[in-house]
Design a protein around this nucleic acid. Structure first.
Lengths: 378, 378
DNA sequence: CCGGTTGAGGAAAGCGCTTACCAGAGCAAT
DNA sequence: ATTGCTCTGGTAAGCGCTTTCCTCAACCGG
């Protein structure tokens, strides 16, 4: 026990600013000033402080710092939790993580440049007081970024009055800003490609979560193009994939079981559900894109590893996160009427781009699948 | 401006415990006691407090709470940042995120059950003072979980004296605990499968990061089996994939360019680099598993979407994270000599399991690729 | 009927910082 | 030499909680 110093020193308290002040022979105020570069202290003072800091390995405590009226330098991120632990029929759902996690990574990179960290919390919407948990998170942070409709409008409103809030793929309110991919133009390009270039006349839209603004606007953009071309669009409750592979597969299974005739092209609300659709079709020996074309949305990395490789609409996922953070950052630390307020209520759309691969019916490029995949990445 | 209340109320300060106390007509001590269930307050008091809390929408401030001697209820997580922003030749590297992110998700679920949140920070190892950044993170948390060798042993030692630390895929020290998958038994099973079941006599090991304990122990386990069977194992600097698709592809390209004869089977240190190997081989028209068998490690979700589907060794990735958190949690909040200390210095190995698919040379199961993929998930 | 015990609420002392505010030194201008 | 700046360091007042300690009332047994 007494042999290893680690044992006795074990959980020693980290040094405080008082320890530094004592070691340096100055007051805590001077230490703080040196560390925060305020009021330029004398060179000698600065040096003594820095020496003491190095010697003790001092780092200011985040909580104390935050309490001293400053920022916590933390932003809370709330993601919607898929329920693979009880509904574990589809381990595929794991990939659901990709999309929000990549967005978070984009945030994190930018956040770091401003000294901020991300406090991540996932919530299960079925859980009764998801609202409470989110409020609790809010009190640990300087601002909140909410993925994908995770709070009721009323709760959102209450929350955003107390703390800056940015939503992703939501709808802006007078007190929040929303950031999302430009669904309209992306879907427009995809729809035209299917209708004009491939001459498909019957399409279906496999929707996402009920009420998801992304799913809605993608669906509407598609419907508009279909209508303009005089083609046919299948929609409705049976065409709902809930953004998940399991949901997409289930929808197709049901339709086939019901004897419904499939459309020439199935446009999925996201890549994830397109994966499920591909699985289900393949199970029934239906050729893609020969019999039915399938497309996704988001262009998550796995899309290019599928067979056939998935045609999709790419959003710069990391930009989504980076923009969300930048926006939130601009809102933090200013009172009402400050410059941050000017931004509130805005709806920021980031560009999207059609990525044609095989699943829509396009030919693979001459160089062959593998090289294409690699080339595409560059 | 005065029209919308949101404008004037804008960034109103959230209510404090004093506001609650005043509203309820009690002291702040009583409010605190009611909220924390201490010293069972009278029913009437409790009710008045709860009413006031509800009325004001009060939530205690995390920083103040932490400063009051209690826990921050935050644990810091440090992941190693892949450098796709400068080395963006392989957008595939995005998938690198999957592994750490899935581990984090496992942590998060369990952490939440204890009221903890995850403060995530990625560090670029090339950055000079990664150490400082990690120390800073430590002061925002009650404990730290470090992925994949992100700190020098000296820095780790200093850090772990100030705050509980758990490493993932590292090595335990007297003051830290390490959690990792059981590489030995997983690799042993894989090696036997290749050598005994498939009778391959020349294999290669495509290593991960230099010095990665995971990569080393996997390599050693493989080497032991190969030696025991009297087969041949290729290794060395040219067989290094650094855990990334780009690295795996590059290694194969170099070997082929150098005219090296490929082994019958390539055993990759992880799935990610196996993906790169598959790409490169496919580019050169080399059949997998016909000409060369390829295997991975980890069994990330994308493994089953590859063609051929990747044989790998599955770790319960979420368990890795969950266990890391549970371990850390046990170390938090106890001084030296407490029960938490008993655990220090331990090395926890979680079970692994061989998953045979096509890339090792096994036949696809009778039900066909698609159904197999789905069935596998259940 | 009184000292002693219990139990509940309030006052106040921190927790480790930041940041007014103040005091004193050095110096220029009067 | 006196006044008045500027410039630097120290003192102390919070920040919003938790928790210890104390007070006071109600209730017990002798």
């Amino acid at each position: 026990m007494g042999i290893d110093p680690a044992d006795t020193d074990g959980a020693r308290q980290p040094p405080t600013i008082y320890d530094v002040a004592r070691t340096a022979g100055v007051s805590i105020a001077s230490v703080s000033r040196v560390l925060n570069g305020q009021r330029n202290p004398r060179a000698e003072t600065r040096e003594r402080v820095l020496r003491a800091v190095a010697e003790l390995g001092f780092m200011p405590d985040g909580a104390a710092r935050a309490l001293g009226g400053r920022l916590k330098e933390v932003i809370g991120v709330v993601v919607r939790r898929p329920r693979w632990f009880d509904d574990s029929q589809f381990a595929d759902e794991d990939e659901n993580l990709q999309f929000p996690d990549m967005i978070n990574r984009g945030m994190e990179i930018v956040a770091q440049q401003h000294g901020f960290d991300l406090l991540v919390r996932s919530v299960d919407l079925n859980e009764p007081d998801a609202g409470r948990r989110i409020f609790a998170l809010a009190r640990k942070s300087d601002g909140l970024i909410l993925h994908d409709r995770v709070l009721s409008p009323e709760a959102l409103d209450r929350l955003s009055r107390q703390i800056p809030v940015v939503t992703l793929a939501g709808v802006p309110t007078p007190t929040t800003v929303n950031v999302h991919g430009d669904n309209e133009s992306g879907m427009r390009a995809l729809a035209r490609h299917l209708i004009v270039d491939h001459s498909y006349r019957t399409l279906a839209y496999l929707a996402g979560h009920e009420g998801s603004p992304d799913s809605l606007s993608r669906g509407e953009a598609l419907a508009a193009q279909v209508a303009a071309a005089g083609a046919t669009l299948l929609t409705g409750e049976q065409w709902r994939g809930r953004y998940q592979a399991a949901g997409g597969a289930r929808a197709i299974e049901r339709l086939i079981a019901a004897g419904t005739e499939l459309p020439r092209a199935i446009v999925c609300a996201n890549d994830q559900s397109a994966i499920g659709v591909l699985h289900a079709l393949s199970l029934h020996g239906i050729a893609v894109p020969g019999d039915v074309a399938v497309t996704g949305f988001d262009d998550i990395p796995v899309a290019r590893h599928l067979r056939p490789r998935l045609t999709s609409v790419r959003q710069s996922i990391q930009d989504l996160g980076a923009t969300a953070f930048e926006t939130l950052y601009a809102m933090i630390g200013r009172g009402a009427g400050g410059p941050g307020d000017a931004a509130r209520g805005r709806d920021i759309a980031l560009p999207t781009r059609l990525v044609r691969r095989q699943s829509c019916g396009c030919d693979p490029p001459p160089a062959g699948p593998a090289s294409r995949t690699v080339a595409e990445a560059g």
